[in-house]
Design a protein around this nucleic acid. Structure first.
Lengths: 165, 165
DNA sequence: CGCTTGTTTCACAACTTCGTGAAGTCCGTA
DNA sequence: TACGGACTTCACGAAGTTGTGAAACAAGCG
């Protein structure tokens, strides 16, 4: 291993920690965030449990718990090469789509709760009107998010085409 | 106080708790979230420390800490009626704008960190290319968020006009 | 079959966060 | 300038989270 490679490894590791930290700042649990960051930095987008444990210096138990969460929310998929006992975790291509979709669901819940509030206060009160407008804001966001996904797909196509030229 | 009013109070209180809980699910600390929810349900959008403490059944110390946070992130403003020793906290009209703006800043930080990663890996590697695309996604979101604020302003005007007719 | 390797479950300990009570500070008022 | 009310600070205790080690479990392979 050359010195240059060592420096690179260090830089990559530092990126994994920083990006993991940012993701956990946005609400994702710490371990899943770090694992996702680690997967992002692999060429294949795949990593075994042991590799994850080694890379992030965590116990197999921690890996187990975190990947269970990540598979549940469809951020990674679990695979196993035939004839092997090792699980391999693959980052799904549509992670950001999934993440956006999940935020969108949250907006739906906010809408529900705000509707309760509007009912409780009535739109004839100032507070009720404020709640009504707040709800409209979140409904607006909901609509925006939906169309944003479409726009991203288009933007991505164009961007990739530009990059290759 | 009539029975109907009592029921309303209960419904409002329930809304405050539910909406506070949702806000804290999205990352905001519990107390600030509850206080914001409480302010939303007042006609004037204003509340004194004592009122907040009473409404949410929390100590003055908890109020103090939470409103300090809320004023720092510009969600509420502190006022004091001349000749009074009571602080009054007012919900700012542009809370949702501020919240969106703050998310936007987060996107900027993500961009920075991802750029480090792209540098560390180089765009000629598969991982580097993936990071590059990820960064492009967040940059796209950044742009979308910016224009979304404008669109919301326009949408709001129209919505208010419609509501009044 | 039993061994080996890899994963999962579970109870525990460390850490962090959160809200409180009590003491402290500030400031207008008499 | 002394009083009183209101806000803030601080240290503590409670509660919830998080990651670990150890043991149980599963599955290929000799």
């Amino acid at each position: 291993m050359t010195r240059v490679t060592q420096r690179d490894q260090q830089a990559v590791s530092q990126f994994v920690e920083r990006f993991g930290a940012i993701l956990s700042d946005t609400g994702m649990a710490r371990m899943p965030a770090r694992i996702l960051a680690a997967l992002l930095t692999t060429d294949s987008g795949k990593l075994t449990s042991a590799e994850i444990a080694d890379l992030l210096q965590i116990s197999p138990a921690a890996v187990s718990g975190a990947v269970r969460y990540l598979t549940q929310v469809r951020i990674v998929s679990r695979e196993r090469e035939p004839g092997s006992r090792r699980d391999v975790y693959r980052m799904r291509d549509d992670v950001w789509y999934e993440a956006t979709f999940r935020k969108d669901q949250m907006l739906g819940m906010i809408d529900e709760v705000l509707s309760e509030g509007v009912t409780a206060l009535g739109t004839h009160t100032d507070a009720g009107a404020r709640l009504d407008e707040t709800r409209e804001f979140f409904r607006f966001c909901h609509g925006e998010l939906g169309s944003m996904i479409e726009r991203w797909k288009a933007h991505r196509e164009k961007w990739i085409a530009d990059r290759e030229s």
